[in-house]
Structures are given as C-alpha cells and as structure tokens.
Design a protein around this nucleic acid. Structure first.
Length: 383
DNA sequence: GCGATCAGCGG
DNA sequence: TCGTCGCTGATCGCA
C-alpha cells in the first residue's frame, strides 16, 4: 500500500487512467473466469493421434538411419549437423553461433540434394506435434477433463496477452496434420464452440490511425485487402492480380503489421533484398497515408522516447537513438508496429469485457473460453 | 537441477 | 553483418 499512491500518480501522469480502469482492470475478472472454465479436449482421440504419430516417427527414424548408415540422436542439432555437412558432405547453407544451422529453411534448400532431408523434415514435423501437442496437452488435462491455461497480461511489449501452462494460443492450424490437434478441442455435451475472429484487424487499425484513403476505401468496398494491395503495388486492375502478386502483397502487409525488415521480407518471398526494398517503396508510394504515418510515428517516438496505442498504452523505445544501424532500424519498426498491434490488442480486450458482460446478461449459459489475439472462442448451448 | 541454445508453433 | 514476439520441448554443458 506504500506503492499505491505512487503508482496511481504514475498512471495519471502518463494518461493511462482510462486504459487501466476501462480495460486492464475489468479484464482481470474476465481472464480469471476464462481460466477457471477451461476448455474440453477429447482425451481418447488425443491418445490415438499420439500413437499414430509414434508409429510414423518410428518409420521415419528407420528411414533416416538407413540413409545415415547408423543410429544417432536426430533431435540433436549438433549430431545432425555433423552427419549432413561432414559425413554426407552436403553444403552448409547457414551457420548458428555454435555450429551448422539445420532449421526448416536450410532443410528446404537441401531437400533435393539427398533423400535423407525430406525424411528429416517429416521427422521434425511429427516430433513437434507429438512432444509439444499430443503429449504436452495430455499432461495438462485436469480432473474435470478440461485444460485450464493461464493468461498473462503483463509480459508482452505491445499489450497482447500471452498464454502459458499450456500455451493455447499456438495450437497448430496451418497444416492438415497439425489441424487435427485443433479439432480435438470440443464443446461440452449440448454445446457448440463458436469461433469469432476479426478479419485483418491490424490492417484496419493501420488504415484508421494512418488515415490512409486508399486502404480505407479497400476495406469499405469489402475487397480482399491483399488483392487490393497487389493491384496498387503492381499497378494492375484488381481482376488481373496473379496469385503470385497476391502472395507477395500479402507478405508485404505481413511485414508492415509485424514490423519485419526488408531482409526478412526478401527471405519470406524468395526475392533479392533490393527487390524487397522496391516492393516496400512501391507499397508506400501507393499507400501515401501509411508512408506519412510511418515517418510521423517514428519521429514522434524518437522525440518522446515512446510510442503509444489509440488508448494510450505506451512502449518506451530508447534504441531509436542508437548509433548502430541495425538496432536503430529494429527500433523504428517497433515504433511503427506497436501502435498497430497494441491498438488491436486494446480493441479485443475491450470486446472481451463487453462479450463477457453481454453473454452473462442475455445468454448466461454461453461462456467465453479463449482469446487468440484476434479471435474469441465461446462455448454456447446448441440451438 | 539450471541456463543457454536451437527449433518450430501461432497471430 | 543485419530477420516480430512469446511459448514449449530437446539437447548439452555446467554445477
């Protein structure tokens, strides 16, 4: 209680009273309830899936050892690196601090050079699903047959939530086999799970706070934003955007939202650093509002020492004054990205409070269970 | 048992 | 040279 007046003063001084009283504090109760409710998982299905993975992992091991000419620990990056780049003489693509890199990107580049590589890629995928998800989730099932995560509201730099023990915000969905895990989260009898997600919330937030007319129009016209971006960037009509152009435009949008660099963008879409730079420049010349906003938000943050969201959540970024180019560039991306991602986080937190209250009021048997950054999962009675 | 390192999952 | 964040699991070297 000695701290209370000091911290209350800090809140007020920094203009975060409203953020605290209208969002963070009421959210605590919502998170507490969500954690207590937990979500049901099909234990038997999960067990069967784990057994299937075990069999496939075993087959994979046999195949890998037939190519390696002996057994070794495939999970050991050091042993794997020695096998691939010394014994088998494959060309090392990338190095880590301590040795050869053997990550997915490296394996992707080597996959046609030796039949052991695709087997290792399969092995990695299968063991990931088995250890982190099939086994990992099984350990977290409580007596009530449900999994109770813990939401952390104080660990991220942007204001997002995180989820631990277990992390229910990174359940696989992008691959078919991975998506099987997600299907094992089930409603309790007589209920259905309703999954409501925002469509492109970060880009909508960007369009709003940057006041970019072209981007706002794209959203108002309900056109696919990546296609619209491609049309802008490549100077073609929307109907003539190719799948490749859309993919590249999507990567640029992704880069803006997550604050990645032109190097990352180049890696992601497989073009040179200079082409990636050209994409970004082209993007900013078409979304002029975004370009102006970028300069303004970075200059503003450099001056004040922090950047902030629509609701006044701050992130201090002293690195903006660094003399190291990479450190400074990283800080500038953070200054741009934090208001976007952080405002989206503010908005969904506000939505959670309202959804929780509205459900309690009108549909008391419907329960908010999970939040995954831009989606809410509700368990509600059928019909 | 603990921390550092590498890897890979999601949004 | 340079590659979001937060989480978890496996390995490895250390105590």
């Amino acid at each position: 209680w000695h701290l209370r007046p000091v911290l209350a003063g800090e809140l007020e001084k920094n203009g975060m009273e409203r953020l605290y009283r209208q969002i963070e504090l009421p959210l605590c109760r919502v998170l507490y309830r969500m954690e207590n409710r937990g979500i049901c998982i099909d234990r038997e299905q999960l067990r069967q899936f784990g057994d299937m993975l075990s069999r496939r992992i075993s087959d994979c091991e046999t195949l890998i050892f037939s190519y390696s000419g002996g057994e070794f620990n495939i999970n050991s990056t050091r042993q794997l690196g020695e096998l691939l780049f010394e014994k088998l003489g494959l060309p090392p693509v990338k190095k880590t601090k301590t040795g050869y890199s053997t990550n997915a990107e490296v394996l992707e580049k080597l996959k046609n050079k030796h039949p052991i590589i695709p087997a290792i890629m399969d092995y990695r995928m299968l063991t990931k699903l088995k250890s982190t998800y099939a086994d990992g989730l099984m350990k977290e099932i409580r007596e009530d047959g449900r999994i109770h995560t813990t939401f952390q509201n104080l660990v991220t730099a942007t204001g997002r939530l995180s989820s631990t023990e277990p992390n229910l915000q990174n359940i696989p969905v992008r691959t078919d086999l991975g998506a099987e895990i997600r299907k094992m989260f089930i409603p309790k009898p007589g209920c259905v799970l309703v999954d409501a997600d925002y469509s492109q919330i970060e880009l909508r937030v960007l369009a709003h706070i940057a006041g970019d007319d072209a981007m706002r129009k794209a959203f108002c016209d309900h056109v696919d934003i990546h296609t619209a971006t491609a049309a802008q960037v490549f100077g073609v009509p929307v109907e003539e955007v190719t799948p490749l152009q859309r993919r590249h435009a999507k990567a640029v949008n992704f880069g803006i939202v997550y604050g990645i660099s032109e190097f990352s963008l180049a890696e992601d879409i497989g073009v040179s650093r200079y082409e990636a730079r050209a994409y970004i420049d082209n993007y900013l010349n078409n979304y002029r509002g975004v370009k102006e906003y970028m300069h303004k938000v970075v200059a503003d943050a450099r001056e004040k020492g922090y950047t902030e969201t629509l609701y006044g959540r701050r992130r201090y970024i002293p690195e903006l004054k660094s003399s190291n180019f990479n450190v400074r560039s990283g800080a500038e991306r953070i200054a741009l990205n934090t208001p976007i991602q952080g405002t989206a986080a503010d908005l969904i937190k506000l939505a959670m409070i309202r959804v929780e209250n509205a459900l309690n009021e009108k549909y008391p048997d419907a329960k908010l269970l999970l939040q995954v950054h831009d989606e809410l999962i509700v368990e509600c009675p059928e019909g």
